[in-house]
Computed example of a mutant assay.
Amino acid sequence: QYHWQRSFSALGKAGDNAWSESFFAIMKKELIYQIQFKDINDLRAQVFAYIETFYNRVRVQARLDYLAPVAWLSLYDQASQKVA
């Protein structure tokens, strides 16, 4: 349905992890290094809030035509339904 493919890259090839490495680098710059956390529960809550309320819904990304991921997925779903 989603046309996903497994990664078949050779062991030690960083290309497969590029998207996750990029995400974690951005999160560290925009959140982790900016806040003094009270404890592990505060850290977890802040990371969850960052991902769910900012990164996925507000933060625009060049690779998604300068849309936030949720907005891009909405347009993608609409386009997919028109084709079907």
Rank of each mutant, 00 (worst) to 15 (best):
Y2C: 14
H3F: 10
W4N: 10
W4T: 09
Q5G: 07
R6V: 04
R6C: 06
S7G: 15
A10H: 09
L11I: 12
G12L: 14
G12Y: 10
G12D: 11
G12R: 14
A14C: 15
G15N: 13
N17R: 14
N17C: 15
A18M: 05
S20I: 13
S20N: 02
S20T: 12
S20F: 02
S22H: 05
S22N: 11
F23Y: 01
F23D: 02
F24H: 10
A25T: 12
A25R: 15
A25N: 12
I26L: 11
M27S: 04
M27N: 00
M27F: 00
M27D: 03
K28L: 08
E30P: 00
L31F: 03
I32P: 00
Y33G: 06
Q34V: 11
I35D: 06
Q36V: 13
F37W: 09
F37S: 12
K38D: 09
D39C: 04
D39V: 00
I40V: 11
I40C: 04
N41W: 06
D42C: 08
L43W: 13
R44I: 05
A45M: 05
Q46W: 01
F48W: 05
I51F: 06
E52T: 08
E52C: 08
F54D: 14
F54A: 10
Y55P: 07
N56I: 05
N56Y: 05
R57Q: 08
R57N: 01
R57S: 07
V58N: 00
R59S: 06
V60E: 10
V60N: 12
Q61K: 07
A62G: 06
R63F: 08
L64G: 06
D65L: 09
Y66M: 15
A68K: 09
P69V: 06
P69C: 10
W72V: 03
W72C: 11
L73D: 04
S74N: 11
S74F: 08
L75Y: 01
A79Q: 14
S80M: 09
S80P: 01
V83Q: 07
V83T: 07
V83G: 08
A84S: 12
